[in-house]
């Protein structure tokens, strides 16, 4: 039943919304991982980020794409928890520090073992529209013991204008989605974060939309 609601939600709401109300300029679609285990890292300015990233995948793969999202925010109440977990299919992540560090990514690792594609926003939260916050190191620790998991960087531009944090009114604009080559392997978290930030900056140059 939930699977059916998910298909209907993405087929009749999300995809039309993303394609008609927004409209995408996509570059580098060939770099998008076709199957898991894989990780997508993207910049984060809007709730629509997740919707746009998921809409890049065909409907029949939708349940395999799993956004990793803050448990404290998305599991706030019963309805939101059902919607986030069952319809969007998020993997909740505990931000409060109450969970032991070694167990923090257990759900993510299980998902990767099931050949799923994780979506992560290393900025941690949506922040100011189209300003990049300092990247967090979680992604490095998540994948460091996972052999053969690719990390694909995606930069989006425009969603911080369409629906920024704290706004309820959606303003239609075209959105750039620039997908880059997978990020290589790294010895330590600092160099991984540095390369990710560099790649994000480089991909940003390809955006054609100019809303501030």
């Amino acid at each position: 039943m939930n699977r059916l609601i998910q298909l209907l939600f993405f087929g009749l709401v999300v995809k039309p919304l993303v394609l008609i109300v927004l409209g995408l300029n996509i570059r580098g679609k060939k770099f998008l991982p076709a199957k898991g285990p894989a990780v997508i890292v993207a910049n984060h300015n809007s709730h629509l980020d997740t919707m746009v990233l998921m809409s890049l995948f065909p409907l029949f793969k939708m349940h395999k794409v799993r956004p990793v999202a803050a448990a404290d925010y998305f599991l706030k109440n019963k309805f939101m928890a059902w919607f986030s977990l069952k319809i969007i299919g998020i993997i909740p992540l505990e931000r409060s520090g109450t969970v032991d560090k070694s167990r923090l990514f257990d759900d993510c690792h299980e998902a990767l073992n099931r050949q799923e594609i994780l979506v992560l926003f290393p900025e941690g939260s949506r922040g100011e529209p189209d300003k990049m916050s300092a990247l967090k190191k979680g992604v490095f620790h998540l994948i460091k013991d996972q052999a053969g998991v690719s990390v694909t960087p995606v930069v989006m531009h425009g969603l911080g204008y369409a629906l920024p944090k704290g706004e309820g009114l959606l303003v239609p604009v075209n959105v750039d989605v620039i997908i880059g080559q997978p990020i290589g392997e790294h010895e330590n978290a600092a160099s991984f974060v540095n390369e990710t930030a560099e790649v994000f900056n480089e991909l940003k140059q390809h955006c054609i939309t100019k809303q501030s």
């Binding site: 075209n174 054609i208 939309t209 100019k210 809303q211 501030s212």
Partner: peptide, 8 residues
């Protein structure tokens, strides 16, 4: 309005 810059 997507390619021509306007303010937030």
């Amino acid at each position: 309005l997507s390619i021509v810059p306007t303010r937030q």
